[in-house]
Design a binder for these strands. Structure first.
Lengths: 344, 344
DNA sequence: CACTCGGATGATAACGTTCACATCGAGGCG
DNA sequence: CGCCTCGATGTGAACGTTATCATCCGAGTG
């Protein structure tokens, strides 16, 4: 009596089109193999019944879910956000769905009960993409990597190379910041470090140190912050207590905003008295006062690349897989640093 | 020869524990009904084999996937980001996974081919949560709502009430901004409007107008912006060409940042010459110069509430479902507005 | 002491799909 | 003209789980 109480299945479509359910399956999966007239009849029946394939049944039979897991940090960071969007879009185009899982970067014991990662593994995703890699994700990555492909979107491989890696070259970005500052005449730089359990933060710190050595500059790195404006503000205040450097390089734009605030409080002018550089090129960087010199990262491209590499890992497991890839960041000079000298 | 070539199934566990696979199923789903000794034996076998339930098979049999769809805007906005995280966490605690789908707010034709929403529906989620509701999601919501429960996390019901609604009271927030400004002595306010196809933006505009009427103030709203600092900057420049108002109320913090930049360029002091208010209480709002008066929204609570309401809709379909809920936002007065007068 | 009752467990079927194989007609070639 | 091949479609089985019913055993009861 209630006709559409159940979702239409292949059998319903087949009955309507006067073929067997196997033919319906063929129309969906290998359209070329079925006679055009038959195919049209089946397609019409599909449209009439409003049939959509049952993904659970398909996953059960094929042992592939067409879903990938996305392991990301719980905080609303700019970079991860952009990357996630790009990944999801690319995944959808490739016929995959994205299962989102967040894992706090807090100091929660690594072996927490309803582990965020174990639920991902258990949910039957075909592969996992780790977006904002930090130490807290280690156990999850290690556990998953033995079962399914895992690709980290990060500066460097999480510890051992449990996972393949695609990322933006953070060291290069940090070095280019130091070089830019050197060309503006700065001789001493302080780095407001990011959280030390984040791989990207470590790589930026490394690049900072390399840059100092390469340019022969003085420099110091603060204790690790936590990406927030508040930590940038507080680290800057501590730093100023012992005499200001000529430039401040914050691990990201948010910390740079906090730094700008602290500098303004102390009556220091940017960039006349002290230069400030951020990292990420957040939407608002260009509209701060002064506008913020920062490092722009190709997050969208990164997301697409990461997804396609993961799919390659999934669909051609035999091939060794491409080597780690690193995209190039780009320094964007704005008002918070002084203009570069004509020639070095 | 290759023992673990296949994921262990219930049958493997059952063989190891010396019971039938049905007993394994019972241990997992109704532990109380099975004899303690048997249960322990099965649990041990599960641990030894590393068994995890096959969700596809379970979904196929029960016709419930334990996955919910999350339809959100593709842009990296602050509010949605926080809400999404809260939803995911709450969902995981309740045993659900979250399938993320983004839909651009661009003017893409509403009937685009590989519609973002149709893929969600087809993927067999049990319900859908719409996070940053705008017109572009209408067709998706309408299509899905006839099949499965849909809950909008938004200011007001998308057009017809295809979906239940949970949200933060945006009108109240906007009214409280006007009232706050009035108490600081402001008599005329301009509103930098958000995109008109976003329900939250419309509600803020409505609240602004209501507030003006309630306080007997003068006011004007600009053409719609797009949430970005750039649009805030440009709208403010246009506005200043025809004489500055006494206060600027931006539809969100990012647009307020753009506005601050434009005001600074014109040599106007904030808040002495003109007051500025944002919306959202972004992390960086407190660390701008001057620090930004804005409206704080309980995004985390919103996410949790939305998820629990959706689950109620899923698990008790017979009940009529709770009425639309609106959480209260909170005005946070900072340096970009002048102090309130002692008494009205 | 037979009979019933309830707790604990096993056997069978079904969910909707894809894979492997069987079937069937049409055409080519000896 | 019969056999073989090939393209197009149908039939049976299986993926791993849960729902339903059947079975078994011991304990209670008249």
């Amino acid at each position: 009596m209630s006709p559409p109480s159940r979702r239409p299945s292949m059998a319903d479509v087949a009955a309507r089109a006067g073929v067997s359910y196997q033919t319906v399956s063929r129309v969906l999966n290998q359209p070329g193999i079925v006679r055009p007239e038959t195919r049209d009849r089946v397609l019409a029946a599909i449209a009439e019944t409003g049939y959509t394939p049952n993904r659970a049944a398909r996953a059960l039979k094929t042992t592939r879910s067409s879903q990938i897991g996305l392991l990301t940090d719980g905080s609303s960071l700019f970079g991860p956000s952009e990357t996630v969007t790009a990944i999801e879009t690319a995944a959808r185009e490739a016929g995959y769905s994205v299962l989102l899982t967040t894992v706090g970067s807090g100091v929660a014991d690594p072996a927490a009960e309803p582990s965020p990662g174990s639920s991902l593994i258990g949910s039957g995703v075909d592969g996992i993409l780790v977006v904002a890699a930090h130490e807290g994700m280690q156990p999850v990555v290690a556990a998953a990597a033995s079962t399914i492909p895992v690709l980290a979107v990060s500066a460097q491989s999480p510890a051992s190379s449990d996972a393949a890696v695609v990322g933006v070259d953070q060291r290069l970005g940090a070095r280019s910041v130091v070089e830019h500052l050197a060309r503006t005449g700065v001789r001493s730089i302080a780095h407001l470090a990011g959280p030390s359990d984040w791989f990207d933060a470590r790589a930026r710190l490394d690049g900072f140190v390399e840059g100092l050595e390469g340019q022969g500059l003085d420099g110091v790195a603060t204790a690790p912050g936590d990406w927030t404006p508040r930590s940038g503000y507080e680290l800057t205040r501590e730093l100023l207590a012992s005499g200001p450097p000529q430039a401040l390089f914050a691990a990201n734009d948010m910390m740079a905003i906090g730094a700008l605030h602290a500098l303004h409080e102390q009556g220091l002018r940017v960039p006349e008295d002290i230069a400030v550089v951020g990292f990420d090129d957040t939407d608002c960087a260009a509209y701060l006062t002064p506008s913020l010199t920062t490092v722009s990262q190709p997050f969208a491209e990164l997301g697409r690349l990461a997804l396609h590499r993961l799919l390659q890992l999934l669909e051609h497991p035999e091939e060794p897989g491409p080597p780690p890839a690193a995209l190039a960041p780009r320094l964007v000079a704005r008002g918070s640093t002084r203009p570069e000298h004509g020639t070095a």
